[in-house]
């Protein structure tokens, strides 16, 4: 069975790119364009992993992360941001991994695979 993952990013181009690239890796990929949409999808559906952008208008990634850890604490979260400047007070330590956005999706893909493999064991 394909693992179901949720990609949350306010940038349309990135949602499309992530969806296509990750589907090529054999994943079942759903997308959400905002924090609010992500929570709505999480309420309805069960996911194996979330890739979460930090900087989004409205409900940002940190807030989404906080809610996920409250309500669905078994779903691993990979935070994805444009740059390396995460801050401790953001609570990013509570995420399972942290990946800097790059047009080379290698790191994101390996991180996803590693986390899913860990969950399977």
């Amino acid at each position: 069975m394909k693992e179901k993952i949720l990609v949350v990013d306010d940038e349309e181009g990135l949602r499309l790119l992530y969806k296509e690239e990750l589907e090529d890796e054999g994943l079942n990929v759903h997308v959400a364009a905002s924090g609010e949409e992500a929570i709505a999808k999480l309420e309805k559906d069960k996911f194996d992993l979330i890739v979460l952008d930090i900087k989004m208008p409205g409900m940002d990634g940190i807030e989404v992360l906080r809610r996920v850890k409250e309500k669905w604490k078994n779903i691993p979260v990979i935070l994805s941001t444009a740059y390396h400047h995460y801050k401790q007070e953001f609570g990013t330590w509570a995420s399972d991994a942290y990946v800097v956005k790059s047009s080379d999706l290698k790191e994101l893909k390996t991180t996803i695979k590693d986390i899913l493999n860990m969950g399977r064991k």
Partner: peptide
Amino acid sequence: LAHEIKNPLVSIGGFAKR
């Protein structure tokens, strides 16, 4: 400026790769 530039860059580069 960087944030505004990075996202489209990743898009451009990612699709070019595909």
